[in-house]
C-alpha cells in the first residue's frame, strides 16, 4: 500500500547565506495492507521529516513515495488533496482547527468530506469521542479550550473517523493515561484488521511492541551533518 523508494531530503536556508543542509538520502521501505511499521531513531534522526514527506507536507528532493498508485513526490496539489481526503490519514502531534468549531464537528469533518450523511458522521464521531472518554458535556465546545491530553484524543478521534486505507501516526499515545492509551492501541489493531497500512512513531516502547509488526531505524537514511 505504501512504497517509499530512494527518497532524499535537504533544506536550503536562503536567508542564511543559502546554506544547503542535506538530511536524508536513500530512504526505502514498504508497508503492506494490514501491517503496522514503526519508525525509530534518536531525536533528530528524521522520523517526522520522513512522515511529513509521505503526507506531502514536506517536499522530497528525490525518489518516489507511492500511496496506492499515486506518487506523492510528483503529484499535483489537487491529487494530494484527493489522496488525503479518501486514502491517506495523518494524526499529527498537535491539533490544528478553526477556532470556535465544536469538538463533535471537528471529529465528523473527515467523514463529511467523503460524503457521509451528516447524521451518520455525527453518530460515528460521538461513538469515537465516547470511546476516548471525552465527556459529552465538552462535545459542543471548541477543542482549543481543552487540556493537552483531551486535544490529543480529539485529534485521534478525527484521524480514525474515516477508514483510511493508509494511516500515519505521530506519537499517538504520547500524553495519554493508561486507559486511553489502551483504547488508542485497540483502534490501531482494529484499523490493521480492516486492512489499513500504518506507519507510526512511538516513543512508548511497550505500545510499539504491541501494535507494530516491524521496526525501521531511520538513522540509516540520515546524512551525517557536514
Amino acid at each position: 500500500m505504501i512504497r517509499i523508494e530512494n527518497v532524499s531530503k535537504s533544506f536550503t536556508l536562503h536567508n542564511q547565506g543559502g546554506a544547503v543542509i542535506p538530511v536524508m538520502a536513500g530512504a526505502t521501505l514498504a508497508v503492506a495492507a494490514g501491517e503496522c511499521v514503526a519508525l525509530t531513531g534518536v531525536s533528530g534522526a528524521g522520523k517526522s521529516t520522513l512522515m511529513r514527506m509521505i503526507y506531502g507536507n514536506y517536499l522530497a528532493a528525490g525518489g518516489r513515495i507511492l500511496i496506492g498508485d499515486v506518487d506523492v513526490v510528483a503529484a499535483e496539489p489537487r491529487e494530494i488533496i484527493e489522496l488525503r481526503r479518501t486514502t491517506l490519514g495523518y494524526v499529527s502531534q498537535f491539533l490544528r482547527v478553526v477556532p470556535r468549531v465544536p469538538a463533535l464537528d471537528v471529529v465528523a469533518e473527515p467523514l463529511l468530506r467523503v460524503g457521509t450523511p451528516a447524521d451518520e458522521a455525527r453518530d460515528r464521531a460521538a461513538a469515537l469521542l465516547t470511546r476516548l472518554r471525552i465527556p459529552e458535556t465538552l462535545w459542543q465546545l471548541s477543542p482549543l479550550t481543552f487540556s493537552g491530553g483531551e486535544q490529543q484524543r480529539v485529534n485521534i478521534a478525527r484521524g480514525f473517523a474515516h477508514a483510511y486505507p493508509a494511516l500515519l501516526l505521530d506519537e499517538p499515545t504520547a500524553s495519554l493515561d493508561g486507559a486511553n492509551r489502551e483504547t488508542v492501541l485497540d483502534l490501531i489493531d482494529e484499523a490493521k484488521a480492516r486492512g489499513a497500512a500504518i506507519i507510526g512513531i512511538f516513543h512508548d516502547a511497550a505500545a510499539r511492541d504491541r501494535v507494530c509488526d516491524r521496526v525501521i531505524d531511520v538513522s540509516r537514511f540520515a546524512v551525517a551533518a557536514a
Binding site: 533544506f11 536550503t12 543559502g18 511529513r52 506531502g56 507536507n57 514536506y58 517536499l59 494530494i80 488533496i81
Partner: peptide
C-alpha cells in the same frame, strides 16, 4: 503548491522570510 507544504517547507527565499 499545496498550502501546508508551502507554509511548512517553503522553498523560495522570500517565502521563507
Amino acid at each position: 503548491g499545496l498550502t501546508d507544504q508551502v507554509l511548512d517547507d517553503p522553498q523560495h527565499g522570500y517565502t521563507q522570510l
